[in-house]
């Protein structure tokens, strides 16, 4: 090896060591762990203990079902909302654009615990402002934390509130990269504003929207904070338990690291699979 290269690797070595110890090794180690029965001491190699259990465990299927419901409802709602907000933010008629842009992005910056606490207060059965508002228009109070469907809706509302602005900013950047004269040409072609949006804006935004969808899918697959903090550890009775929370409980409450590892790998595989499916469906027809 040349001296130059040796010196370069020398400088890289501290980082590579840390990368190997805290990144590569946990990935390998957890993969091996998923094949071990970690409920007995010492751990023994027993693939069926975790992978076999995974496919028969009703708790896993419950968490998977909850995660999928959130994914299937929340991601499309949020991306649609983000696209609409981005178009509105991009409007030349809008005043104080910078302020709105910041306001929509702000939820991402807010601390998770603080936002969870505020949501718990707002959706409180007896004194939360949401129920008060519902009552004022004649709708009965909803017990957001003890009814499984309501709790699921609450989760979806919370996640959408937190991440819609983030996606809005990404889509807005995409919108601004579409040259204005294309719209002028369409205007002269007698194409209405709505059709310009459908036939020009959306197709040109497709790669950006796909990117946001994939990011959101990965995020939803890992959803943890909201069911942990807002719906009180996946309550009521596991009604909002997600895969992320199920993993946490297996790993850090039951200390069954082998099973938690198997869940983690399943989540990653599912996220990759769904994202690839998405990219395949949204690919450019050649």
């Amino acid at each position: 090896m040349q001296l130059r290269n040796r010196a370069a690797y020398g400088f890289l070595a501290p980082y590579l060591l840390i990368f190997a110890a805290f990144w590569i090794w946990p990935i390998i180690s957890s993969f091996m762990m998923s094949f071990q029965n970690t409920r007995i001491n010492p751990w023994v190699f027993s693939p069926g203990a975790n992978w076999g259990r995974l496919f028969t465990d009703p708790a896993f299927y419950n968490a998977l079902k909850n995660t999928m419901i959130i994914l299937v409802i929340q991601v499309p709602v949020m991306i649609t909302l983000a696209t609409v907000m981005a178009v509105l933010l991009n409007s030349p008629l809008l005043k104080a654009r910078g302020l709105f842009r910041f306001a929509f992005f702000a939820p991402v910056v807010v601390g998770e615990v603080a936002y969870a606490a505020v949501f718990r207060l707002m959706f409180n059965l007896d004194f939360g402002i949401i129920n008060k508002l519902l009552n004022s228009v004649g709708i009965a109070s909803i017990s957001w934390f003890s009814d499984a469907s309501a709790a699921m809706a609450l989760l979806i509302i919370a996640v959408t509130w937190r991440w819609a602005g983030y996606n809005t900013i990404i889509i807005l950047a995409g919108l601004q990269s579409i040259p204005g004269d294309v719209y002028e040409a369409a205007t002269l072609d007698r194409v209405s504003k709505l059709r310009q949006f459908i036939y020009i804006t959306l197709p040109l935004l497709k790669p950006i929207i796909l990117f946001c969808v994939v990011l959101s899918i990965i995020g939803s697959m890992q959803l943890f904070t909201e069911p942990m903090l807002i719906t009180n550890r996946g309550g009521p009775g596991g009604g909002t338990e997600t895969l992320g929370l199920f993993l946490y409980r297996q790993g850090f409450t039951s200390l069954n690291f082998g099973y938690a590892s198997a869940i983690a790998y399943t989540m990653a595989a599912l996220a990759i699979l769904i994202s690839l499916l998405n990219l395949w469906v949204g690919r450019d027809a050649k």
């Binding site: 040259p179 004269d181 294309v182 002028e184 040409a185 205007t187 002269l188 072609d189 007698r190």
Partner: peptide
Amino acid sequence: ADRGIAMVFQSYALY
């Protein structure tokens, strides 16, 4: 759109 004109742009402005 209703002026009966067509315009060719400097940047082409193709879709």
